[in-house]
């Protein structure tokens, strides 16, 4: 089994599964080429009725299939409900497919979720449902997808992301403050004719230009950091032009995993160095995490 976390929502799935599609509040998981499990979630403000949302689902299936209430969680008997979570399980079929689903209302997290599986394996679906954890307000958001893991401070919302071969990127925002996490690889190819300083200068010129770099060290590797603190004139210009003059960039090489990790922050006011450092320390490749614990 492996744990997959995306934007604060985590669950335990078979080891050969990966995200096949990701949205800001949605993920589809399965082995390569076969989407088996879909999870969607949203914060709940005000009242929430699992029954009412199930009726919506049933209507959506009404065209060429059906969804019917059925508790496929053997011996579940209100176990989840007592832990502050209301679950409405159902079975569905459409066309030649059938599967299991559940509407979830996590009152502690203040979240509603829909889990839908293309399987009739009730034990497996029960295990996925039981392992489902939704982001709680005020807690850091966990990310553990493909080969990276990170914890982002509460309040930072995921704005955009990409997962291209060799280049992953996640961008978060809290007000006008921006946090960016990137992963580049393979490091031995990128650094064959370059250095971390040259690479950072070419890829993030706005964060490195006329800023001196300093060596930095993390448990997962060594690297460089650029920290820009503007003078009074630059602060005034930034305020007038609504720029973010305070910035911090840390680029480090995880030699064992053959990756380069990058964390960058931009803000209109002085950055919290301890918080930035905590983000960097939480941001690792799974390979390095397994090696160093």
């Amino acid at each position: 089994m492996r744990r997959i976390c995306w934007n604060g929502t985590c669950l335990e799935v078979p080891a050969d599964w990966d995200p096949l599609a990701l949205g800001l509040a949605e993920m589809r998981l399965g082995p390569p080429g076969a989407s088996v499990l879909s999870v969607k979630w949203t914060p709940i403000r005000g009242g929430f009725s699992t029954e009412k949302h199930f009726r919506k689902i049933a209507r959506a299936f009404a065209g060429d299939g059906e969804a019917a209430r059925e508790d496929w969680r053997a011996d579940a008997a209100g176990q989840a409900e007592t832990s502050g979570r209301e679950v409405l399980p159902y079975v569905w079929r459409t066309g030649g497919e059938s599967g299991l689903g559940a509407v979830v209302h996590d009152t502690a997290a203040g979240m509603g979720a829909l889990l839908q599986a293309r399987t009739d394996d009730r034990a497996a679906a029960r295990a996925w449902l039981d392992s489902l954890q939704l982001a709680r307000p005020g807690f850091p958001r966990e990310f553990e997808v493909f080969d990276i893991r990170a914890e982002v401070p509460a309040g930072f919302d995921l704005e955009s992301f990409f997962f291209k071969p060799g280049h992953f990127g996640l961008t978060f925002a809290r007000g006008r403050e921006q946090l960016v996490l990137e992963r580049l690889g393979p490091a031995d190819v990128l650094l064959q004719f370059s250095t971390l300083a040259l690479l950072a200068g070419a890829r993030w010129p706005d964060l490195t230009l006329s800023v001196a770099s300093e060596p930095c060290s993390l448990p997962s590797g060594h690297g460089l950091e650029w920290s820009a603190t503007p003078g009074p004139a630059a602060r005034l210009a930034a305020a007038l032009l609504r720029r973010r003059p305070y910035s911090r960039l840390r680029v480090w090489h995880e030699a064992e995993a053959n990756r380069i990790l990058v964390a960058a922050a931009r803000a209109p006011s002085p950055l919290d160095a301890a918080r930035f450092d905590a983000v960097c320390r939480s941001y690792v490749t799974l390979r390095t995490r397994e090696t160093h614990g």
Binding site: A25, E26, P32, S38, W41, T42, I57, A60, G95, L114
Partner: peptide, 18 residues
């Protein structure tokens, strides 16, 4: 995105399968 909207079925593509 509709929270409880049903997943769209992927269209069949001609040519080689995965």
């Amino acid at each position: 995105m509709s929270l409880f909207g049903r997943a769209k079925r992927t269209a069949e593509r001609p040519g080689l399968s995965r």
